[in-house]
Amino acid sequence: MNLQQIAALLRQDQVVAYPTEAVFGLGCNPLSENAVKKLLNIKRRPIEKGLILVAPHWDFLRPFIAFEQLNAEQLSRLQQKYDRPTTWVVPAKSDTPHFLTGKFDTIAVRLCDHPSVNALCQACGFALTSTSANLTGDAPCKTADEVRLQFGEHFPVLDESVGDAQNPSEIRDLLTNRLFRQG
């Protein structure tokens, strides 16, 4: 499918697969509880784990992050460019839906400069949920064909390539710098 078709499905609260820096992600409108629950069901992922949100710039992520809880050093680290994709676990605004945060009072966010993520966010006007496109326990998909093999030939996939990153994003806690997942 092309970008316009995928963006239309996202605006209709559907779940799609799209390329990110290293693997395909499963995404939907993070403000749609119905869409997020579809995603969790497809992925077989427990709601308690929470989800990552990706966007090309902070304007898309502001509705979810409690920026007032961050000091200048943390803000600087959050906005810095890194050699590899880096997801930050940050304080969530109190009204961030639990279907995004899971059992936490934090939200995982990543600035993503992949052209497909940028174009989809611009076309839809919102950040995207991002969890690797794979069934729990299987390897993340690196091609559109792999997505179709795992999720079916009619699953909506943006037919573009993943980026050059070798591994999915590193995940760190912004407040403590604790490493949750090596990138």
Rank of each mutant, 00 (worst) to 15 (best):
G102C: 02
G27P: 04
A72P: 09
F180I: 15
A144T: 09
P85H: 04
R11C: 05
A139H: 13
D145L: 03
L111W: 08
H154L: 13
Q122M: 11
R44S: 10
R178S: 15
S169F: 08
L111A: 11
V16P: 00
R77C: 13
Y82E: 08
F67I: 01
L179G: 05
H154C: 13
A133C: 13
A7H: 07
Q122I: 05
T20Q: 05
D138M: 04
L31Q: 15
V54Y: 04
N134I: 08
F155S: 11
L149A: 14
D138K: 13
L174K: 11
E170N: 09
E48G: 04
I52T: 08
R44C: 07
N71K: 13
I107A: 05
Q150E: 09
L3I: 14
Q80W: 03
D13T: 04
K81D: 15
S169Y: 11
L175V: 15
I65H: 06
E21V: 02
M1V: 14
E146P: 00
Q4L: 12
Y18T: 01
K81N: 12
E160S: 13
P46K: 12
A8M: 06
W58D: 06
L111P: 03
F155E: 11
D95Q: 14
L111H: 02
M1H: 15
L26I: 08
L175I: 14
L174E: 10
D59H: 09
I47M: 10
I171D: 08
L26K: 04
S132R: 03
P63Q: 01
R110P: 02
F24D: 02
L3N: 09
R77H: 13
I107P: 02
Q69H: 10
G163W: 10
L174V: 10
L39S: 02
L100T: 03
L40I: 06
V15D: 00
R172W: 08
K49M: 06
E153I: 06
T131R: 01
S32R: 02
R181L: 07
G50K: 08
R110I: 05
L61C: 04
S132F: 05
R178F: 14
K49Y: 07
R77S: 07
V54G: 03
L9D: 02
S169V: 11
L26D: 00
S130D: 01
H57G: 03
V109H: 03
D13R: 04
H57F: 08
G163R: 11
H154N: 15
L111Q: 12
D164H: 14
T86I: 10
F64N: 00
P168N: 04
A144P: 00
A133R: 06
Q5K: 14
Q4D: 11
G102H: 09
D164T: 12
C124L: 07
Q122D: 03
P115I: 02
E21R: 00
G25L: 01
E146L: 09
D105V: 11
